[in-house]
């Protein structure tokens, strides 16, 4: 593809991301309620984790400050990474048959959905990630990366986390093409994501083979890995490579599934 056409295509998806951002900004009350809930639960979790680390100092290689920071960081990931299950609208569009319209457009269904979701994540980052973290910092004090390099490594890792989350949720949403209903898969996804991402408990507390599995599975790339990059408890290039690999695998599977969906497409209704 010539460079100028690539530019035009990029502009299209950038615009879609912008629309995704603005679309979500119309649900301001929902976002604020989410931010409030994230903050309150952050405080509760912080007390639990403080109690745990005071009883078992140095557990999992974290000290108390690390644990509290981990707590508020992961609270901040809930919105952008949709840790507690956020279905893509795509699933509903497959169910209703509206996806017919999406498939007709001269654009990639996957990139379109991804751009929209990145816009959503950007909005939720501002509304549901930043304020709870600031509250946590004010109440308990959290550690902060010590250099611009460290900050930017975290920035990249955060975006990668959102990409992996999208890659996973896109597959969940597209499964609707084959099983007609995404509720079961979605419930499973919520459990898997919540537990294996490190949201419920840091993955470095998981014992033996369970820990090995959790640290190798894609969900770790959404929460545990970016949190470790922030805390400086994981080697940056290894962390980014891990996230990049899972993003590539999930997005690749997504592209494959999209092609399959196009072939099999039984568009429901009318």
């Amino acid at each position: 593809m010539p460079a100028h056409r690539r530019g035009v295509v990029f502009q299209l998806y950038l615009r879609i991301a912008g629309y995704g951002f603005r679309r979500h900004s119309t649900y301001r009350a929902a976002a604020l309620a989410g931010a409030f809930t994230n903050t309150i639960f952050g405080v509760l979790r912080a007390y639990v984790l403080i109690a745990l680390w005071e009883a078992r100092p140095g557990l999992g290689g974290y000290d108390v400050a690390d644990a509290v920071t981990f707590c508020f960081l992961t609270q901040a990931f809930i919105g952008p990474m949709q840790v507690f299950g956020g279905t893509l609208q795509l699933a509903q569009r497959v169910r209703s048959g509206d996806v017919a319209i999406d498939l007709m457009r001269p654009a990639s269904l996957q990139l379109w959905t991804m751009a929209d979701d990145m816009g959503r994540a950007a909005y939720l980052f501002l509304v549901r990630s930043v304020p709870p973290t600031l509250v946590g910092a004010a109440l308990f004090g959290i550690t902060v990366p010590d250099s611009p390099w460290h900050w930017s490594a975290f920035g990249v890792s955060f975006v990668m986390g959102v990409l992996v989350s999208f890659g996973w949720r896109y597959l969940v949403a597209l499964s609707t093409c084959w099983i007609n209903d995404d509720r079961g898969v979605n419930a499973l996804s919520v459990i898997l994501t919540g537990f294996f991402s490190g949201m419920v408990l840091p993955l470095n507390l998981f014992p033996g083979w369970l820990g090995a599995f959790a640290n190798a599975a894609p969900w770790a790339a959404m929460v545990q890995v970016p949190a470790d990059v922030y805390l400086g408890t994981r080697e940056v290039w290894g962390a980014l490579a891990f996230q990049g690999a899972w993003a590539a695998v999930l997005l690749g599977l997504g592209a494959f599934a999209t092609a399959g969906a196009r072939r099999k497409v039984v568009i429901q209704g009318g």
């Binding site: 119309t26 017919a100 319209i101 009318g270």
Partner: peptide
Amino acid sequence: FGQRTTLWWDL
């Protein structure tokens, strides 16, 4: 499609 829309609902 009379029963579907291509427009962005919230914008």
